[in-house]
Design a protein around this nucleic acid. Structure first.
Lengths: 93, 93
DNA sequence: ACTATATTTAGAAAAGAATCAAAATACGGA
DNA sequence: TCCGTATTTTGATTCTTTTCTAAATATAGT
C-alpha cells in the first residue's frame, strides 16, 4: 500500500475547526484532550482533525505518558504562505 | 431563500484548479474561455470554479461583448493572508 | 428573426470529507 | 496481570464538492 496522501495543507486549512486548533496551539502546546474540550465535537472527531494536521506537517506531537501533546510545526505553513504572498498588495520580492 | 453562502475563501483555495486559475490571472486578465483552455476540464466545470472564486471575492469580472474577462481581486486574499501571518516564523507585528 | 460564439446554469453521478458511536491501542500504576 | 485514563482507529452515515452532459442565457452579426 502506497500510503494514502489525501489532504494537503490547503485541504487541512479549509476546515474551520482545524484553523481554530492551530490558533489554540499558537499560545502553547496542548494535549489532545485539552483541544477536544474546546469544541462541541467528540474526542474522536478532534483526533481525526489532528491526524489531518499531522499528515500535512502543520503540527507535531510527542507522547507524555498517556497523553499526546500537540504543538505547531511552522514549517508546514510555508507552502501556503509562499503562495499567498504572490497575491499580496505592495508585496516585496 | 437566504442566498447560499457556501464556500469561503479557504474553501475556494482548497482546490488546486482554482489556485492555478489565480496564478494565471496574476500575469494578466483572461477570458473564461482562455482559462478553460488551460485545463483538461470542460468549460462548464471551469465556469463553476470561477463562480466560487467570484463568490468569495478572489476575482472580478467584466463583460466585453460575448466574453467575460476575469481578473484578480486582491482584497479577497486579505483574510487568508492575515491568518497565515500569525504563524510565520520571524513575523513582524 | 436567425445563427454562431462564449459562457453560465441545472441536474445528476461520483468522489471526498466531517462526524459519531463503538472497539481497539497505549501507558502507568496497583 | 488487570484496571483506568487518554487517545486513536474503524465503520457507518451524512453532507459537500467536483465533474460531466445537456439546456439555457447573452451578445453580435447577417
Amino acid at each position: 500500500m502506497p500510503k494514502k496522501a489525501k489532504q494537503d495543507v490547503w485541504g487541512a486549512l479549509a476546515d474551520g475547526t482545524r484553523r481554530e486548533i492551530l490558533l489554540l496551539l499558537r499560545s502553547r502546546p496542548h494535549t489532545a484532550g485539552e483541544l477536544a474540550d474546546q469544541f462541541e465535537l467528540t474526542a474522536a472527531t478532534v483526533s481525526h482533525h489532528l491526524a489531518v494536521l499531522r499528515e500535512c506537517g502543520l503540527v507535531l506531537f510527542e507522547r507524555r505518558a498517556q497523553t499526546l501533546i500537540y504543538s505547531l510545526d511552522t514549517e508546514g505553513f510555508e507552502e501556503a504562505s509562499a503562495y499567498l504572498k504572490l497575491f499580496a498588495r505592495g508585496r516585496r520580492k
